[in-house]
């Protein structure tokens, strides 16, 4: 039990939990700014960026992927603005057009390029490869204090933990201006706060979370975690600080429940194969939102 759990289940669980929390944290602000779709857009446009980065470098590595994704995100922002301005289309529709088109372009690129040597395909883009992020060097719980085993943990784990920690620290540092300019941008500007930069910073944090989480858990989880845990949390409380804490709890709960249900749920039901953890985690987060909509304390207003 010890070896199996520590080697096969613990790393994907931890990665899933931190990926979910990293997306949910900026998701709170996107949701309150009525920009939840931006998270959706970012997680879609990441794909062509990553494919181009792979075509240029020939390897799947974190740094070129990040650069490619950031470049794609930048292009998408410019395109959305261009479609909105020159196409005279409302912002939501402009975003919808650009991110679906870019995701589709990413799929085409992926099909046409030779990625047989690496683990990069359309399925991977959607569900990631959470189940395969295992730690074969673990021998049991003792490995958690064994430095030589620890350095052989899947690199996604450390990347996700650092990403979440970075986003959490930035959110704590800039809590007051972020809350103020999200609630009342005009007032924030009258105080001299750089509201444009703050808005951009929130989107940049979301982009960072999306890019880091994309490779490990795929875009389905990223999209779900930007919206579902914050929306569920909003129904639990009427205070922003409490909402953010609740959203992290719901993100972690979705990841753990989803992972366990995907692995064991079908077996309990008599089926022989487990289902996609990414799909189950996103589904659980949606079910939690549904439950909160029916039973949570602050759903009236």
């Amino acid at each position: 039990m010890g070896f199996e759990f520590v080697a096969l289940s613990l790393p994907p669980l931890v990665i899933g939990v931190f990926a979910a929390m990293a997306c949910a944290l900026p998701g709170n602000f996107l949701l309150l700014r009525r920009q939840a779709l931006i998270g959706d857009a970012i997680s879609h446009v990441v794909l062509p960026g990553i494919v181009v980065a792979f075509l240029v470098t020939g390897v799947i590595a974190a740094i070129p992927m990040m650069i490619g994704a950031a470049g794609a995100a930048l292009i998408s922002v410019l395109l959305i603005e261009a479609v909105r301005r020159y196409g005279k289309v409302e912002p939501g529709a402009a975003m919808g057009v650009v991110f679906t088109a870019m995701f589709a372009a990413g799929v085409l690129l992926l099909e046409q390029s030779d990625t047989s040597s690496v683990h990069l395909d359309v399925e991977h883009a959607l569900y990631g490869n959470l189940e395969s992020l295992i730690w074969l060097d673990a021998v049991g719980w003792a490995s958690l204090v064994d430095w030589q085993a620890l350095v052989l943990l899947p690199p996604e784990l450390l990347r996700m933990v650092i990403t979440f920690a970075g986003i959490a620290v930035l959110t704590l540092l800039f809590w007051r201006p972020m809350a103020l300019s999200t609630f009342d941008e005009g007032f924030a500007r009258s105080l001299g706060l750089p509201t444009g930069m703050i808005g951009l910073g929130i989107v940049a944090m979301a982009a960072l979370a999306a890019v880091a989480a994309f490779d490990a858990v795929g875009s389905i989880i990223v999209i779900a975690m930007f919206i579902c845990p914050p929306a569920t949390a909003r129904l639990m409380t009427n205070r922003l600080g409490h909402q953010v804490v609740w959203s992290l709890f719901f993100a972690a709960l979705s990841a753990v429940l989803g992972y366990v249900l995907a692995g064991y749920g079908p077996l309990w039901l008599g089926a022989s194969d487990s289902v996609s953890a990414a799909g189950m985690i996103a589904t659980v987060s949606g079910l939690l939102l549904g439950g909160a909509a029916l039973f949570a304390p602050h759903r009236q207003s």
Partner: peptide, 8 residues
Amino acid sequence: SVDWDFPT
């Protein structure tokens, strides 16, 4: 100009 449903 603001969203009075804001959690505050």
